[in-house]
Every structure is written in C-alpha cells, then in structure tokens.
C-alpha cells in the first residue's frame, strides 16, 4: 500500500471498519512510513476528542428542570383558559340579557300587532321561560 492509499483509509482504520488484510497492510505501511504515522497519530487524537466529550451520567437536575418547565406550561394553559373565561363571562351575560330582552320585545310587539286575538300574553310568557332555560351560551363556554 502506498502513502495515498494509506492516508485515504486512515479514518476507517481508526474506526475499525477495514478487513483484517487491509488493516495489516496499513499497519505495515505505518511501521515503515514516518509521514503517514504522524498523520495517523494526529487523526487518532482528534477523533478521540469526540468520544471524550460525551456525557455518561444521568443528571437528576436536568430531568427536574424539564418536568418543571412542563408543569409551568400546563398551569399556564389552565390559567389562560380561566382568564379567557373570566374575560368572556360579562359579554356572555350581556349577550344573554340582550337576547332575552329582544325576544321579549319581538314577541311583545307581535302580541300587540295581533291585538284582536288575545293569545300573546300567555304565549310570550312561555317564550320568556324557555329563553331563560336556554341560557346555554354561558354554560357552553364554561364547559368548553
């Protein structure tokens, strides 16, 4: 094996990826050639840096910090949902009241328009009650 072939295969030799015969050819060359040997030593040291900087221990603080972050995210989600609800609540109540009043007025008007037949009184009362029962807007928001 010449210098060029050897140098092109050094990294694979260091990583133990060559066949036995190729490895021994490289070893033979390295024994004879100082230049390639120096290159080999330097390459080996540089590549070993990669395995030396690896962490091997489990860090309890790391786990705790991840879990704390997750707990924060979760409680933020819950408090945000609560905040949205608190914010929307007055609007929901106002919307319900407006709805009730307008339905009331509408049916009230219908009643007065059809004065000849005296049905409106009791019927509009029934609608009032239904409407109160259907105050589901708020309810839906809470249950969201």
């Amino acid at each position: 094996m010449n210098c060029n072939d050897t140098q092109n295969k050094l990294i694979f030799y260091i990583d133990g990826e060559l066949s036995k015969s190729e490895s021994s050819e490289i070893e033979n060359h390295l024994d004879r050639c100082n230049n390639c040997n120096i290159l080999y030593q330097k390459l080996k040291i540089d590549l070993s840096i990669l395995s030396s900087e690896r962490i091997m221990e489990i860090d309890v603080n790391f786990t705790e910090s991840v879990m704390q972050n997750i707990r924060n995210i979760e409680s933020f989600k819950i408090s945000n949902r609560q905040k949205t609800l608190n914010f929307l609540m007055p609007f929901a109540v106002a919307a319900s009241i407006i709805l009730i009043i307008s339905v009331g007025i509408l049916f009230g008007n219908m009643g007065t328009n059809k004065t000849s037949t005296q049905i409106s009184g009791s019927e509009s009362e029934v609608f009032y009650i239904n409407d109160l029962e259907q105050e589901s807007l708020e309810f839906n928001l809470i249950n969201e």
Binding site: I55, I58, D59, T63, V66, M67, I70
Partner: peptide
Amino acid sequence: EKELFSELVISYQKEVINICNGFLHDI
C-alpha cells in the same frame, strides 16, 4: 399521568444531550 414523562426524560437524556453536543460542541 403527566409526571410519568420524567421516565422518558431519564431514559433518553444522555442520547439527546450528546446528539445536541455533537452538533453544537458546547455542553
């Protein structure tokens, strides 16, 4: 059972940190 997530963190933290360090070269 949200707290069980810590088991995944324990199982994979070394690999994840080492992979990130493989790219960033700064622990």
